[in-house]
Design a protein around this nucleic acid. Structure first.
Lengths: 113, 113
DNA sequence: ATGATCTACTCCGTTTCACGTAGTACCTAA
DNA sequence: TTAGGTACTACGTGAAACGGAGTAGATCAT
């Protein structure tokens, strides 16, 4: 099934998307989940995004602060650390060359000679 | 480490690349391995490509024929089945929208409103 | 005050894939 | 007969996505 392939293809990508969402400033978890849910091609859920947020936190790519909310438990606002910004830049660089390589493979590049 | 992320990102992609290599006609295993090794961003080895070839075979996306070789054991020439061509078309379609979605996320698209 | 509902997460188990290491086996040429 | 190129196969590990269930704070209608 193509769905299964898509699940595999998403590996690594959700993490990249989380960092991309945070590149402009802080956002809280639920908000990030809702934002990524809107990208149909990703179609992620809470159980995918929250573990990524905490993993990126323990790896010090993200920092956070808790802010009381008027509608529910305190919100945890995440933002990129300097370390996280470096990682995002590395990911951007790799993603760019990867997409270019795939594009070259799609278009005409023959193997053999 | 970024290397680990790259390993995750490759999941699903190697399979896609194998189908892309075969889209024009048949190739034998060793040749496919050498072709994909030349793509630095993928940097795959035999132990990655051969299992994919046999998986795609049992899933009937590929067919093959054995041809005696002048230098070694018979070569197994793989080619796309009609089913495989459909799958490749689906993958192309998904890959295209995914790359576009990531591009949109990279450029300016804000969340929240 | 009590239950319903929204918000904001956390935990656990399963599946799948990439990949490293090692091993098998075939064939030609010196 | 052995070295070297060719063509795979087997096995185990690690990491990520994901489904489903659970936890818990806060507001609001009854």
């Amino acid at each position: 099934m193509i769905e299964n392939w898509i699940t595999q293809l998403r590996k690594g990508l959700v993490e990249y998307c989380v960092l991309l969402v945070l590149r402009r400033g802080e956002n809280y978890g639920y908000e990030i989940v809702q934002a990524l849910k809107q990208i149909e091609e990703l179609s992620v859920s809470e159980s995918t995004v929250y573990p990524i947020l905490s993993r990126l936190g323990t790896e010090r790519y993200l920092k956070w602060r808790d802010v009381p909310s008027s509608a529910g438990p305190p919100r945890r606002y995440f933002s990129l650390t300097p370390r996280g910004k470096v990682r995002l830049a590395e990911m951007n660089a790799y993603w760019t060359v990867l997409v270019a390589a795939l594009q070259a493979l799609k278009q005409g590049k023959e193997i053999g000679q």
